[in-house]
């Protein structure tokens, strides 16, 4: 646990658990041709907070997620991260401090777990061609730091000693954890998790939950998309429920959980189900 302690006491950035505003989306609307996938949605995320994003299939969660991560530029409205509007370039977004995982795991399968995490360090290191060829002390230091940090992060997500395995050979739960470690390697201030427990068994889900709490406690802001309601309501400080691109409810887990409209959106009356299948 010693490494965890190190991390919890300040190795992850943005550690001050003050309620800093990390991400604010205002009136975000995204149109594809005639289709309005996301319609006038607001969202604010503070550091040290976990926000859940729920909604039935096709509610526009992933589109909204992509607006947040800079994959799409919203048709109108704006997304500010730490007070700034980010350019719609994934790399710039990562550099600014926003990292994500993927719904369908996208590790680098033929790299070892350790290398996967080391790739996450790419944007925080700077050795370019000439430096890499000359191999001065700066290069060596940076390379050693990258490796050390990657080993730390593997231990942090509970994969100590697994670094030598190829990502493709890891069990499913470990692959999810490795993705989180890789995202953490980019030194994010905000972590976006796209269905982090999809396909996991209850035990793995509980482990994931613990891991996410641990990350939150180190001061990061977290946004989670999930279908597993129990997971979401256990985990999240606030929950935003999207239906057909619009905010249906936003509030604490308890509020959202007891809102009849949410239940209706999921279990549905016939009319709502018809239109829900658009994005």
């Amino acid at each position: 646990m010693s490494i965890d302690d190190v991390l919890l006491t300040g190795d992850l950035p943005g550690h001050q658990v003050g309620k800093q505003e990390m991400l604010s989306a205002r009136n975000v609307t995204m149109r594809f041709g005639g289709l309005v996938a996301v319609d006038d949605v607001d969202l604010t995320v503070h550091s040290g907070e976990i926000v859940g994003l729920i909604g039935p299939n096709g509610a526009g969660k992933t589109t909204f997620f992509n607006c947040l991560t800079g994959l799409y530029k919203p048709t109108s409205g704006e997304v500010r991260f730490a007070g700034e509007v980010l350019p719609p370039k994934p790399r710039k977004v990562v550099m600014a401090g926003m990292a994500r995982t993927f719904q369908n795991i996208r590790l680098f399968p033929n790299m070892t777990a350790l290398e996967n995490v080391m790739v996450g360090r790419y944007c925080r290191t700077s050795a370019m061609a000439v430096t890499s060829i000359v191999r001065g002390p700066k290069f060596r230091r940076e390379e050693a730091e990258t490796r050390e940090r990657a080993i730390e992060l593997l231990a942090y997500v509970g994969m100590k000693g697994q670094g030598g395995h190829l990502a493709r050979n890891l069990p499913y739960g470990d692959q999810r954890r490795l993705e989180i470690a890789r995202a953490l390697a980019t030194d994010p201030k905000l972590l976006l998790l796209d269905e982090p427990t999809a396909g996991m068994n209850p035990q793995e889900t509980r482990q994931a939950e613990e891991l996410i709490f641990k990350i939150r406690d180190s001061g990061l802001a977290i946004v989670v998309i999930e279908h597993d309601m129990r997971f979401i309501f256990n985990l999240c400080d606030r929950v935003l429920c999207l239906v057909r691109g619009k905010t249906l409810v936003e509030g604490t887990a308890a509020q959202v959980q007891s809102d009849p409209r949410v239940i209706e959106a999921y279990i549905g009356s016939p009319e709502t189900q018809d239109g829900a299948d658009n994005a």
């Binding site: 991560t69 994934p90 790399r91 990562v94 550099m95 990292a99 994500r100 993927f102 996208r106 590790l107 680098f108 399968p109 033929n110 790299m111 790739v119 996450g120 790419y122 944007c123 890789r182 995202a183 980019t186």
Partner: peptide
């Protein structure tokens, strides 16, 4: 291995 994932992890593809 995965160009999109690399980009999303901040690699300058």
């Amino acid at each position: 291995e995965d160009e999109k994932a690399a980009e999303a992890m901040g690699v300058n593809v």
